[in-house]
Write a protein that binds this DNA or RNA. Structure first.
Lengths: 163, 163
DNA sequence: GCAAAGTTTGCAACATTATAACATTTGCAG
DNA sequence: CTGCAAATGTTATAATGTTGCAAACTTTGC
């Protein structure tokens, strides 16, 4: 498996996108899920950058390219993509981002840069384990973890933009 | 300091509320912040249970008691309470809950029961440390952590309500 | 092939959550 | 008591998300 590039630095982003799309196709084939044109297009739009995209941003982009969709179209596509683990929802931003570990069963941690907006998805066992054991100590049965860390990414530290 | 009761089990909830209110008064006095009647009433409404309350729920309750407020009134009170650490916002629910550790500088973990809706706030160092060191490993400068765990609280396990 | 059944999409209306802009009132310092 | 700053009132609107039903498309069994 190739090392994944850090989203902050310039990288061949086309490769991110095409990887995500072929992964999605594989996953859907395996699960007998239909990656319809709309769903695939929404996934592609989400992957156009490493910044989370709002549902209405997606809607606007679809509209701009001639497909004048209504909100339910987008939300349904998002529901599908969420269900198959192809995208994540970032609750603190009401926005969506491509999953960097599709098909890999994982618990995600998101590092969200408040300056540039780029999000890095991590799957760190030490974090997950600490969380699960804290929950266990309270006899709480974990189903879903939302862990979103806001701050400054390496590229944005020091250059606080009010320069 | 007295042990805090678990929210799941029956407890003298009046004590939770009055404690929260006197804590809030102390904190505001120390910081020269004005805990006005509206702000105090909103805090009290939020503390009426251990379930997060939506802004519009607060609005409705204020209305029911004769104070017909508009959304900005509530959101401004919430902003104030958030700013002084008297309440927390639960992003995954778009709702607000009283802070169980007001004045104590802490990072919170929320255990949210999807069945009964009760939320337990924890401040567990092992979790915080694991998160901070994971962020450090990515050279990410942490400012804010959103950690919301959804699942079943001890009281709701086994009694899945579709009985 | 073809019809029935199930899934997906289109569409219109609506519900919920949050903010903007500006007027008015209140609390407080001088 | 006057003038400033903070807080609240008021109206309108923006942003996000859902419901319900009809039409189109896919799959399946025959």
């Amino acid at each position: 498996m190739p090392e994944r590039a850090l989203p902050y630095r310039p990288h061949n982003h086309e490769a991110c996108v095409s990887q995500a799309l072929t992964d999605a196709q594989d996953i859907c084939r395996q699960q007998n899920a239909r990656l319809t044109p709309i769903r695939e297009r929404v996934l592609e739009l989400i992957w156009q950058s490493h910044k989370p995209l709002g549902a209405y941003d997606i809607l606007a982009q679809l509209g701009a390219e001639g497909h004048k969709a209504a909100p339910p179209t987008v939300y349904r596509a998002l529901d599908f993509l969420l269900q198959y683990g192809l995208v994540h929802r970032i609750s603190s931003l009401n926005a969506f981002i491509g999953c960097a570990h599709a098909g890999e069963h994982h618990r995600s941690t998101f590092l969200i840069c408040r300056e540039c907006g780029i999000v890095l998805e991590l799957a760190v066992d030490t974090v997950t384990n600490a969380i699960e054991s804290a929950a266990k100590a309270e006899a709480f049965q974990v189903e879903d973890i939302t862990l979103e860390i806001s701050g400054l990414c390496p590229s944005c530290q020091g250059s606080t933009s009010h320069a």
